[in-house]
Amino acid sequence: MINLQHIERVFQVGDEEVHALRDVSMTATGGEYIAIMGPSGSGKSSLLNILGLLDRPDSGSYELDGTRVSELDEKEQARIRRHKIGFVFQFFHLVPRLTAFVNIALPLMLSGMKQAERQERVTTALAAFGLANRAQHRPDQLSGGQRQRVAIARATIMQPTVILADEPTGNLDRNAGIEVVEILEELNRQEITLIIVTHDPELGKRARRQILMVDGRIEDDR
């Protein structure tokens, strides 16, 4: 369902050209659990950005669920992100002034869903992630683990086919980290493709497939 072919990404830093991705090709089938690993600066976040349509490759093609998404315009790409891709970030990226409930409801709101229908979906999600009594709390009133659970609830509220997680435990203590990973793995068992970027080998080992990146290339894939 994911097919990347010969992806190149070059950034201009000052007057130097930095090759973030060099001829990256990979495929993934539905329901896979992949860890993208590598030292910092190896291009693993750049790869995740390409996979999440947050960035466009300079060349190469990207097919997602049979659609050549690399050729879609900005609006169509936004639609794909909304319906097929869920993001989980290291720094949670919750909107600080909004409650947990509203943060989870954001994707539904952007898609124009009616208030009543939204209410039901978000309430179900809150309960499913053990946040039922935290609905009206703002992010600064939540623990790190709770914040990441809100972020995961938000990432899954549109029932995406793939979840992209960038260092999802990087900002959590050990116990909260394990809890978050177990939630993500539970989602993977429900046939959602899970791609985690991490430099934590222990977390990487839990994935069924590891991709090692070095200097913008896929060094190892097993």
């Binding site: 999440g52 947050l54 900005e74 609006k75 936004a78 639609r79 992100r81 909304r82 319906h83 993001f87 720094f91 990226h93 909107v95 954001l106 994707p107 952007l110 898609s111 938000r154 549109m158």
Partner: peptide
């Protein structure tokens, strides 16, 4: 900036 990036990641288009 981060919030705008997030909204885009959640599927907000340029127009939105």
């Amino acid at each position: 900036r981060a919030e705008i990036g997030l909204l885009k990641a959640l599927g907000a288009s340029r127009t939105q």
